[in-house]
């Protein structure tokens, strides 16, 4: 079982550059280009299709932030939008192919970095809203003896955010890898084997489709069984990809953003 690992690609000086960082930069670059393109040339009247998409994205995230955090925290919309788009694209990047892209969020470092940003923003926002005196006194509530408990519960938030996302993504990656290994026996080429099986299947079906009516029943059943066997790896692996990459990935990105908003505005 070859689970894709966090590996060091090259060094800059003595600083190791891992594949996580490379894919993070690729995703950030793609997202930056996308959002700069979406946000360029905005008009008030006579808007184009591009601006409709941009406004839809902004108003969806904006409504979510206003509903959860209150209208006086509307300046967090860019942060939440950036967090959500980055996490969502990183989580579903495993969809592009196993062994080609390792989702950056399946490395402990990426969710930890996001959780630390949320933690710093949380403390800053609490100080900004309540003032430093009330903020410090809130650690002594309800009794001064609860100070260690309050500090631990404050630190537990980023830890739980980190491990929720990391565990989900790494667990999904391991299960996907195991199912690939179970079905096709090789871990590096499953995508191409699946694609090849589809092509073969299409060729077979296309070639025998015209003669299928005249075939005896047992041969027909055998052909259908062969086609089903060829499709099986594709069907099972695509189901696994849909569940672990698309469903769990988008859900975890949403939960991360929602809990970030709740922590920041609490």
């Amino acid at each position: 079982m070859n689970i894709p690992e966090v590996s060091v690609g090259f060094y800059i000086g003595s600083f190791p550059i891992t594949n996580t960082m490379i894919w993070t930069w690729v995703i950030l670059g793609l997202l930056s280009v996308l959002f700069i393109w979406l946000g360029s040339g905005l008009k008030v009247r006579n808007i184009g299709k591009k601006q409709v998409v941009a406004e839809w994205i902004y108003s969806a995230v904006g409504n979510m932030v206003r509903d959860t955090m209150g209208p006086d925290h509307a300046f967090f919309i860019p942060y939440i939008l950036a967090l959500f788009s980055f996490l969502m694209v990183s989580n579903i990047s495993g969809f592009w192919g196993l062994g080609i892209v390792r989702p950056p969020t399946a490395d402990l470092a990426t969710p930890l970095a996001m959780a630390i940003m949320t933690f710093i923003l949380t403390q800053w926002n609490h100080i900004r809203v309540n003032g430093i005196g009330t903020y410090l006194r809130s650690f002594l509530e309800p009794f001064p003896i609860m100070l260690p408990m309050n500090i631990v519960s404050e630190i537990a938030n980023p830890v739980s955010l980190t491990f929720r996302m990391f565990g989900n993504l790494l667990g999904g990656l391991i299960i996907t890898t195991m199912i690939y290994g179970l079905l096709v026996g090789a871990n590096t080429m499953p995508v191409w084997i699946a694609v090849g099986s589809v092509v073969l299947c299409v060729v077979l079906v296309g070639r025998y489709f015209t003669r299928l009516k005249g075939l005896p029943k047992n041969k027909k059943a055998g052909l259908i069984l062969l086609a089903a066997l060829l499709f099986l790896p594709l069907a099972v692996t695509s189901f696994v990809h849909f569940y672990f990459d698309l469903f769990a990935g988008i859900l975890q990105a949403y939960i991360f953003c929602l809990l970030s908003m709740i922590f920041i505005s609490a």
Binding site: F163, R164, G167, Y254
Partner: peptide
């Protein structure tokens, strides 16, 4: 419901992290 399930899944994920 999905959000609540995702949050309550966390305790299971802790066990998964320990196992990993």
């Amino acid at each position: 419901m999905l959000m609540g399930q995702g949050v309550s899944e966390t305790t299971g994920i802790y066990g998964l992290v320990i196992a990993l």
